[in-house]
Amino acid sequence: MLAAGVTVVWLVTLCGYDVRQRRLPNWLTLPGGVVIVLAATLFGHGVEALMGAGALAGVYLLVYLGAPTALGGGDVKLAVGVGALTGIFGPDVWVLAALGAPLLTAVLAAGAAMRGIPTVPHGPSMCVASAAAIGLVVL
C-alpha cells in the first residue's frame, strides 16, 4: 500500500511540474525509474520492469531522435519509470498505457488548439495513461 501511495505522489508531482514548467526534471524522472526497477526486483518482477522500461524508453528515444519537436528529453526519461511500472503488470497493461498516452495527448492538443494554445505537455498523459491502465487490472 505504501508503494502505491508513493507512486501516486510521484505521478501527480510529475504532472504538476510538467504542466507548470513545461519540462520534466531529471531529479524526478531518473530516480523514480531507478526506484521502480529496484522495488520490482525485490518483489520478483525485475525482468518485467526492465523489459517494460527498455521497450518504452526505446520507442520514445526513437521518436525523440526522429522528431525532436514531438516530445522532450524528459519524456524519454519518464518512459523508463512508467515503462517499468506498467511492465510489472504485464504486456497488456504496458501496451494500453503506451498507446493511451499519445492518444490522450492528441485529444488534449486538439482541445488546446481550439482555444489557441499551441502545445500541451506529454508527461501528464504518460502518467495518467499508466495509472489508468494499472487501475483497470488492480481494481
Results as ranks from 00 to 15, higher is better:
121 P>W: 07
126 M>V: 05
88 I>E: 05
39 A>I: 13
19 V>C: 02
65 L>P: 10
138 V>W: 10
119 T>H: 04
49 A>W: 04
20 R>L: 13
36 I>H: 03
113 A>K: 14
32 G>E: 01
101 A>E: 11
27 W>Q: 12
121 P>Y: 04
106 A>Y: 01
29 T>V: 06
90 G>M: 07
118 P>C: 09
14 L>A: 12
70 A>V: 11
31 P>T: 00
88 I>P: 02
128 V>S: 10
77 K>M: 08
90 G>K: 10
129 A>F: 01
96 L>K: 06
124 P>M: 03
92 D>G: 08
128 V>K: 02
102 P>S: 10
94 W>V: 02
87 G>R: 06
70 A>P: 02
83 G>C: 05
61 L>V: 13
94 W>S: 06
108 L>N: 04
15 C>A: 14
8 V>Y: 09
116 G>I: 03
134 I>F: 05
87 G>W: 01
47 V>H: 01
63 V>L: 07
30 L>C: 05
41 T>Y: 06
19 V>K: 00
27 W>A: 13
119 T>E: 11
1 M>V: 13
128 V>Q: 12
87 G>D: 05
81 G>A: 14
134 I>N: 13
19 V>Y: 04
20 R>I: 09
68 P>G: 15
62 L>R: 12
139 L>I: 13
14 L>H: 04
63 V>W: 02
35 V>Y: 01
86 T>Y: 00
93 V>L: 03
99 L>H: 04
90 G>I: 07
25 P>I: 07
59 V>L: 14
90 G>P: 02
11 L>G: 07
105 T>P: 00
37 V>I: 15
113 A>V: 06
106 A>M: 03
1 M>R: 15
98 A>T: 10
59 V>K: 13
54 G>E: 10
133 A>Y: 00
5 G>L: 11
61 L>C: 13
89 F>G: 08
111 G>A: 09
38 L>H: 08
131 A>T: 10
64 Y>C: 08
81 G>V: 01
57 A>F: 05
52 G>I: 09
85 L>N: 06
128 V>G: 10
83 G>D: 03
17 Y>F: 15
49 A>Y: 07
116 G>S: 04
107 V>W: 02
35 V>N: 03
63 V>H: 02
49 A>M: 10
30 L>P: 12
55 A>L: 15
117 I>R: 14
93 V>R: 09
101 A>S: 14
25 P>E: 11
63 V>D: 01
6 V>Q: 10
26 N>A: 12
46 G>H: 03
129 A>M: 05
66 G>S: 11
129 A>Q: 02
27 W>T: 01
2 L>P: 15
72 G>P: 06
101 A>W: 01
105 T>Q: 02
91 P>L: 07
105 T>S: 07
34 V>D: 06
48 E>I: 08
37 V>N: 04
36 I>Y: 03
27 W>L: 14
95 V>T: 10
73 G>E: 06
123 G>V: 08
38 L>N: 10
43 F>R: 15
38 L>P: 14
21 Q>L: 11
